[in-house]
Design a protein around this nucleic acid. Structure first.
Lengths: 338, 338
DNA sequence: AGCAATTAGTTAAACGTTTAACTTATAATT
DNA sequence: AATTATAAGTTAAACGTTTAACTAATTGCT
């Protein structure tokens, strides 16, 4: 049986209230008593019962972490890094993380995750784009919600985002500095705020450099921005225009797909065509040449989200707060000065 | 405020004990009363408090899920699938899953995950190989532990495994049936039980076919069995022997690495050399040709582990139980009849 | 010296369940 | 009719904390 507060109290010859006060290091307790109690706690290896605490505090000590299954299961461990960041920061705040996935085609008839129905979380972190019917369902609950890497259009939610526009600019500027002047863009669903922002960054830089934004070398579809999509996008692109010298892909997965197309069709990277991705999730040598990209601070997004969450829980605040994290240009071998 | 059992009792005009009995669908309650209570529960959207329940039942309702960070963050979402399986099955058993990673170089001075120290889990699922100092630390705790995809050498632990020997045999037999008679093996750390079993399956089939096991075309190292390792292994292999017509890689990641080496060196797959992997984790078209492999029922491993866990928790049993899941041969385009 | 203020601790109620032990009403058996 | 058995519910204690309200001892102030 685990030691309880009573065991500690008995051992230290004080009341259980005193033990509790020491645990919360309340000022009312003298140093002498504190030492006595602390030593008993140490000896017994006492840890307060999560359940008992949750019962009287009327909270759970848990934070739900939700993402869609296709995001979680994709090849590039983007969201996995975000989760790890959250989990890490949760330790610092004495919180536990309950991870669950929802269907990417969640609809109004689907059940909400069990920890929401049973109100066994004090807050929710939602990573990546989730179906809007899911978000709608959440409105009846009053716990804080923090979005990471995706923010619904309504401006009532807190979120941790990266500077996608800036990232798009950095990538495009880099390609321009390398001497390219026919720079294509490939993206998935342009309705996705992140992709749209990256595209806007692309446009900004193209225009700033005095080049013209040419729809013929801009390709996006509604499909999931993964490798197959990148492959197909590159195929369409090169069938429309032969003189493309560089591609900015909205993420690394699409970039890798596009690279595969180029390899299959004798287009040498970066000699015939440079390519840059976004996210910095492929670092292994099976991708050749190494992909230049925009680094996204994935773990940091997770930690920032959990920090925000811990604050909101502690202050019982519902105010909407936003964090914007910077991105960096990472130059590897897939982009080359002409 | 969330509705409590009292609210339900008041609404249904019964005692709280009756509500509790209905929730547990105890036979002592008449159908009539049951209906009344159930309808009140429905109307109020009542869910029992996890904390209150945990307090009296002296359990947490949580299961810890542990793996090393490099396993979790690897490119192929192998363990992610296992986790999802566990999480799914946890729902069926009214359990929550607390996921956390440990360092792959965990040592005796590292702290155990918080949920273990605070005894906030009723059991532990450990996925993949973990450092043995970690396992040693666990011995002071008495909750059930289930290993998945890795079982320490001592035979005191419960586990869910796949038939690695059989998988090795299936893969090798397939290559033999395709007409190959110089079949190489590449693997990572041969001390890893799964890799050793796969290798043993390979040997079984080679011998059974009357071929000889040739150390020159067998390559393993102590390194992590990822893509870079596969690349290097292929390099060593082809520098030692030119007439290899097929490779069995101990997993898909190493196979992909080896494929990259072959592509870089003009070895056409499968015309010059066939290759088969293990795990079935790469299904995207950026890997070309599509990789033949041994399918591992990843989600099922997760669900089976959680089923076992739920039983052990329910029966308060500590007996050692094992589940062995079968694997399948998946023929794609990287292996070809000569 | 007499009173107020401060310090250091204790008491006891509350949080929302579960469940053994009890009660009461009805049915079955002698 | 008296006794026993069964059915259907209720009572109350317990689980391990937190914290407001209280007490008692000491110190400070006039």
């Amino acid at each position: 049986m685990n030691p309880t507060i009573k065991d500690v109290a008995k051992m230290a010859n004080v009341s259980i209230a005193t033990v509790s006060l020491v645990v919360h290091n309340h000022k009312r307790i003298s140093q002498e008593t504190k030492d006595k109690v602390l030593s008993a706690i140490e000896q017994l290896n006492y840890h307060p019962s999560h359940s008992a605490r949750g019962l009287v505090r009327r909270n759970s000590g848990n934070v739900g972490f939700i993402l869609t299954d296709d995001h979680f299961l994709r090849t590039e461990p983007f969201y996995t890094h975000i989760f790890i960041g959250s989990e890490f920061e949760a330790h610092e705040n004495e919180l536990y993380v309950l991870l669950t996935t929802i269907n990417s085609d969640y609809n109004i008839n689907n059940k909400l995750p069990r920890f929401i129905l049973e109100r066994n979380v004090d807050g929710l972190i939602i990573a990546g784009k989730v179906p809007s019917p899911f978000i709608d369902q959440l409105s009846k609950y009053s716990f804080p919600i923090i979005f990471v890497d995706y923010l619904p259009n309504t401006n009532k939610y807190s979120g941790v985002m990266i500077d996608n526009v800036k990232g798009g600019e950095l990538a495009t500027e880099h390609l321009i500095r390398c001497g390219n002047n026919v720079i294509a863009f490939i993206g998935g669903d342009i309705e996705h705020p992140s992709i749209r922002d990256r595209f806007n960054g692309y446009k900004n830089s193209i225009e700033k450099a005095g080049l013209n934004v040419n729809n013929e070398i801009i390709d996006y579809t509604e499909d999931y921005p993964g490798r197959p999509n990148g492959y197909n996008a590159a195929e369409r692109l090169f069938s429309r225009s032969k003189n493309i010298t560089a591609i900015f892909a909205c993420n690394d997965a699409m970039a890798v797909g596009a690279m595969q197309y180029m390899k299959d069709n004798g287009i040498r990277i970066p000699y015939d065509c440079s390519i840059i991705g976004f996210d910095d999730v492929v670092s292994d040598n099976a991708i050749d040449p190494a992909l230049s990209t925009i680094r996204v601070p994935k773990m940091e997004m997770g930690t920032e989200a959990m920090k925000l969450m811990a604050q909101m829980i502690k202050n019982n605040s519902k105010e909407c707060r936003r964090v914007l994290l910077p991105v960096d240009l990472i130059v590897r071998d897939s982009t080359k000065r002409i």
